[in-house]
Write a protein that binds this DNA or RNA. Structure first.
Lengths: 333, 333
DNA sequence: TTTTTTTACGGAAACGTTTCCGTGAAAAGC
DNA sequence: GCTTTTCACGGAAACGTTTCCGTAAAAAAA
């Protein structure tokens, strides 16, 4: 089978390669009749321009890279779906990379991407406390970068996030409003900024709206069994009547602990959690959540990136999207 | 900022471009000392070979395409994770495409991919009943293709699936064993082969292991509200004591219906479902599932594809992976 | 009519690699 | 000591586009 490239089309039509190329790109220098002939043949032979050749010549690939920690919860699945919607609509493609929480892997990905493979990068930072020389380098090379969800304040790229502080206040206040007198805040030990920001929201709300004498913060590890033990210990010792989990996996562990030590939700203890779990409504009892606009975060980040790619450096406007409190049975009075 | 290409390295080291290229690829024609110098400079300048240029010259991109219907349930997220593990380990990249159930979109994706952009394609077919001329075309062009989960028996590409028939038998039998006398099978109207295969498993099990006089099959639409109405109607009229849902979304709808018409699970009715829902254990009551080895399907499919890419056409061995029955409260006696 | 502009196209360079082919010098074989 | 082989590298072509530059012919302007 003959491979059909632009050269073959040209030969077949008795035209110069340049003419065919221009016709395909609908240049005004080409007569309508010639265009017609070229289009017809191209369609008939299902001609597809070689991506590497165009990319090499034009110094662009129509591909962006999406770098995220992983896909173990629904949040990033939804973000990806949002990104896909935009890239698909605008004729772009995307490569997907998981850093698995490994900063070195992130550095490696970013470095190997700065070689014409992609026109831009969408990144949710793996470890926000680590250095980001690799990102500075990306900026120096002029490769558009948009950060989302897990961002670094030290970078002045466009950032797309959700209102973690405000919704943490809302969540805490919701527990207070439903009668909780002693509210615990659960986080993971790796102090990712989003965790810290949510914590300040919790503290702020306690201060302002509650009479609780002292905050009650439990720092768990990433290990589920360890978290289970820690939470159980805390529940038995401190006996809080409200729990605010900063991550959905912590809420899930809480459910298990409560089952084991026979605490009834929401009678004995109320639980609220940040979560994008699509089955939150089906848990036993259904879980009240602060749900981030994950799909919209993906859409917005992608849209911003493509805008920058086209305009070669547009306005640097951060975008903060609103999360929603979805009240369910785990916090009913 | 100077862009550092191989030409720049050559000039800097007073070497020919070809020498540098060979050194970087660790050719035996280059002396160890020269290699050292080249490696050192390349590392110092963080040189990354231009992907489009290598791709164009070498006619390969080290990128594969992954085409799936969507990511609305955990199954495909897990598959993607499995694929990522393999591509990452073997130095490949992957582009992700969603067909959203639109056959024409699948055709369009496949066609535009056959232009050197990717070295191979991993596909879960959108509509197995539709024609697959686009896939034949891909085969003719010599672009490796591996099908997974939703495959077409008419294609003789490598296929990676799970044991839908056997596990449907197992699922039905599980309901029979827990005492169900009248078991309904729930499917969606689009007769995707996987649905049909599961149905035959259900029928086979009824025939062999149950005294149920006739099968009870309900065909739902993709619309959740319609499915709700249909299931409710069926439950009230037929009063089955066991439900086998071929898709997890149907099981979820069942839960809602049961709640509304006050049927107790598992006392009044038992439910089992194909599902990869990570929170199946947390539902109320926890849901007994047939869980497909999604991650392994992704791993296997990717591994097979990369093998074919390297060997340029290896053995055509289909792979069937085993699903697991995970017994939970929705089917307890 | 002559000159200028426009139209519609052709030729060739360039994008950054990889690899084929060639070659002088050193090493090996005789 | 002469021929042959090996070694280590250089030059240039090729991958398939896009676009710059050039140019006959036709159209417009003079």
């Amino acid at each position: 089978m003959n491979k059909i490239d632009i050269r073959y089309l040209a030969k077949e039509l008795n035209l110069a390669i340049s003419t065919v190329s221009r016709a395909l790109r609908d240049s005004h220098e080409i007569s309508p009749e010639t265009k017609e002939k070229v289009f017809a043949l191209a369609k008939r032979l299902n001609y597809q321009p070689n991506a590497n050749a165009s990319g090499l010549r034009g110094q662009k690939s129509k591909i962006i890279a999406v770098v995220i920690p992983d896909m173990v919860n629904d949040f990033f699945s939804l973000v990806i779906s949002g990104i896909e919607k935009i890239t698909q609509a605008q004729g772009y493609h995307f490569l997907l990379y998981f850093t698995h929480g490994d900063h070195a892997l992130e550095v490696s990905f970013i470095n190997t991407l700065a070689n014409g493979r992609v026109d831009g990068v969408l990144l949710s930072i793996t470890d926000e406390n680590n250095n980001n020389e690799h990102l500075e380098e990306l900026n120096r090379k002029g490769i558009p970068l948009v950060l989302f969800d897990r961002v670094s304040e030290r970078m002045d790229n466009v950032k797309v996030t959700s209102d973690n502080y405000e919704s943490a206040v809302t969540a805490t206040r919701h527990l207070i409003d439903t009668g909780c007198k002693k509210i615990a805040y659960l986080k993971v030990h790796k102090s990712i900024p989003v965790g810290t920001i949510r914590e300040s929201g919790y503290l702020e709300a306690l201060e302002k709206y509650s009479k609780q004498p002292a905050p009650l913060i439990l720092e768990c590890t990433n290990d589920n069994d360890e978290a289970f033990a820690a939470i159980r210990n805390m529940l038995e010792k401190e006996k809080p009547d409200g729990i605010f989990a900063s991550l959905e996996k912590l809420a899930v562990v809480c459910y298990r602990v409560c089952e084991q030590i026979q605490l009834k939700i929401p009678e004995d203890i109320k639980i609220i959690s940040f979560s994008n779990l699509q089955t939150a409504a089906l848990l036993n009892p259904s879980l009240t959540t602060i749900t981030q606009p994950a799909f919209e975060i993906g859409e917005t980040a992608a849209r911003e990136l493509l805008r920058i790619i086209r305009k070669k450096g547009g306005a640097k406007g951060d975008v903060v999207l609103k999360s929603r409190l979805i009240e369910r049975k785990s916090t009913s009075k």
